[in-house]
């Protein structure tokens, strides 16, 4: 295998690994820009993966699975909203709590329903999102450079992958070109001003959280019935936190979020590829370095060494009307 083939295969796997990150990071983008920290992204991903796997197994229809994933994820969003918007509780505590509930509940229910140690049964092939071969992929496969790139990286992904990339311009448009987006960004910076303008801060933040739940539902569904064919306990494996890191790394902006997710996905794919291989002059590079790199990069960024990461000003602060 020459270097180009290796690169193609790493790129293909990088795309696949970055999709759940991309959905989740965009999900976090909406809540954080509205001033609600959501540590619970990990949990949302997990419950939606579980729901999607159960429903897809039951109905053999991936779209119903997706619907279930989104629905459950939005329910979790509402609990987070109830705690942190309506009751002005600590947003981080609420997120941590929901992560635990998600991690426990999925396994408890999975074991009670299917008795396979928290796994759900295999989803049949027609219940999954299958790879789509884009037109002409086979025809130009033999063309040097562009051919393999098109056939193996751009083509051959499932529909959710394309939706994920479509969500990037859509998120940008919603945040920067619609009235809802303007207000959403305003409520994350200065909720008092939004309130003065006669707009309900609470309802606006709830709507932001619904969008968050909607997008996180895609991420979980992708994990369960696109990337694999069942729910496995704790299958999100910290991806919610990497997505959070990507969101910060991208300084809370949609297009940079995409590049951050691709970078972290690439690091993950590269780490998988490097496992057990040795590099000339250096020897075997420990895979743990690649695993830790997204987090280290994010800390370095947060430290202000690569530009300044300025979070939404009202983030994490419950809004109280003046009495």
């Amino acid at each position: 295998m020459d270097y180009f083939d290796i690169l193609i295969s790493i790129l293909g796997s990088a795309i696949r690994l970055s999709i759940p990150l991309l959905f989740t990071a965009l999900a976090g983008l909406f809540s954080e820009r509205a001033g609600i920290f959501d540590i619970g992204l990990e949990g949302k991903m997990l419950v939606s993966a579980f729901a999607a796997a159960c429903v897809a197994h039951l109905t053999a229809n991936p779209w119903l699975g997706l619907l279930a994933g989104i629905g459950v994820s939005i329910v979790f969003s509402f609990i987070h909203g109830f705690a942190s918007i309506s009751n002005r509780g600590n947003q981080i505590v609420s997120g941590v709590a929901l992560n635990f509930v998600a991690a426990g509940l999925t396994v408890v229910l999975g074991q009670a329903w299917y008795g396979q140690g928290g796994r759900t049964p295999q989803v049949p092939a027609e219940g999954r999102f299958a790879p789509i071969i884009l037109p002409g992929a086979d025809a130009i496969r033999e063309v040097p450079f562009i051919g393999p790139l098109y056939a193996n990286v751009i083509s051959g992904n499932n529909i959710l992958t394309y939706i994920a990339f479509l969500m990037v311009p859509i998120s940008w448009w919603v945040l920067y070109r619609t009235r809802f987006g303007l207000r959403l960004r305003a409520v994350g910076e200065n909720p008092g001003a939004v309130d003065t303008a006669g707009i309900s801060v609470a309802w606006l933040r709830y709507r932001a959280l619904i969008v968050t739940g909607f997008l996180a539902g895609f991420a979980g569904t992708y994990l369960a019935i696109a990337q694999s064919a069942a729910f496995i306990s704790n299958m999100s494996a910290g991806k919610g936190y990497i997505a959070l890191a990507a969101l910060i790394f991208a300084k809370w902006k949609p297009v940079p979020v995409m590049f951050a997710c691709l970078l972290f996905g690439f690091l993950d794919a590269f780490a998988n590829f490097m496992q057990g291989k040795s590099v000339p002059l250096i020897g075997e590079v420990p895979v743990q370095i690649f695993q830790a790199l997204p987090y280290i990069l994010t800390c370095v960024l947060l430290a202000g060494f690569i530009g300044v990461a300025r979070p939404p000003k009202a983030g994490g602060v419950p809004y109280t009307k003046e009495r």
Binding site: S94, L98, V108
Partner: peptide, 9 residues
């Protein structure tokens, strides 16, 4: 883990 999450909540 569920109980723990609910207690935190």
């Amino acid at each position: 883990v569920v109980i723990q999450g609910l207690v935190i909540l």
